[in-house]
């Protein structure tokens, strides 16, 4: 009965796409968060809408438009960060404003508003063959790159200056990471939605950080949480007739709140158990 959900081809695709994205999004998210740049996902996701609108106006695949827009935006953020390193977060705000402005103006020229709106909150159950192939290729590339550059990304996230002194090609690795982020955000924008993808970058990692006892464990836990949120979110959405993207994110938020509460309770219990010395 529960498995009836898998009888439909579109749901099989949704699960496949969701699981692949759940594997790669936390890999990007953890480095982003530890570099204190968690808002980059938001900026890129909003900018991707400008690319989506361009694709819809000029009649080419909107995901390719989103990729071009996010890569340009990500490179723009890196360029501005270098110009004003003390106010690095300003770069994100500038690019996000530009992206939102462009998306708002360009969306006025899109004839099929429903198609544009589907990118705001995603349509994971309406993924076509080309998009599925794109998700598979992007996921394989991002996962492989993350594994190959594991220790470099760790060191850069920990201390960029120390990484540079240790001989890590910081500029090149940052450029590759920027590309990874941009392509991940653009394919995820189509499926979970541009307005939701930044939450997916942050929430599973935030949960992983609550329980991780090492960096490696935190990465694995974050991926585990993302997988659970995706699968649970899709199942709940299917049976309750809800929007999948939003349900996935809300499942994550509720779990995070429960983890916060659990930790708070555990701390209070530990304190209560300690004998009073005063």
């Amino acid at each position: 009965m529960v498995l009836s959900v898998f009888a439909y081809g579109f749901m099989q695709r949704a699960f496949l796409v969701g699981i692949l994205l759940a594997l790669i999004i936390p890999c990007i998210g953890i480095v982003m968060i530890l570099k204190r740049l968690s808002m980059i996902g938001d900026a890129l996701a909003h900018t991707s809408l400008a690319g989506v609108a361009t694709g819809l106006i000029f009649n080419f695949n909107p995901i390719l438009g989103a990729m071009a827009a996010t890569v340009t935006a990500a490179l723009g953020i890196e360029a501005i960060r270098k110009k004003i390193p003390r106010y690095a977060e300003l770069a994100i705000a500038v690019i996000m404003s530009t992206g939102i402005g462009l998306a708002a103006v360009l969306s006025g020229f899109v004839s099929n508003a429903a198609s544009f709106n589907s990118f705001l909150f995603g349509s994971i159950v309406a993924v076509n063959d080309f998009e599925l192939l794109l998700v598979v290729l992007v996921s394989a590339a991002v996962l492989l790159t993350f594994i190959l550059l594991y220790k470099e990304l760790f060191l850069i996230a920990y201390d960029e200056e120390a990484a540079r002194l240790a001989g890590v090609p910081v500029k090149t690795i940052n450029f590759i990471f920027t590309l990874m982020t941009a392509v991940t955000v653009s394919v995820a924008a189509r499926t979970v939605g541009a307005l939701i993808v930044s939450s997916m970058l942050v929430i599973p990692v935030a949960c992983g950080l609550q329980l991780g006892r090492s960096y490696r464990q935190t990465v694995l836990l974050s991926i585990g949480f993302a997988l659970v949120f995706t699968i649970a979110g899709l199942l709940i959405a299917y049976y309750a007739g809800l929007k999948p993207g939003g349900t996935i994110v809300l499942t994550g938020v509720i779990t995070l709140l429960l983890l916060f509460a659990g930790r708070h309770l555990a701390t209070r219990l530990r304190r209560a158990k300690k004998p009073h010395t005063a």
Binding site: F154, L155, Y158, S214, Y215, T218
Partner: peptide
Amino acid sequence: FPATAAEIVQT
């Protein structure tokens, strides 16, 4: 930073 002493030293 969520890393163990060994992970930091390994860098």
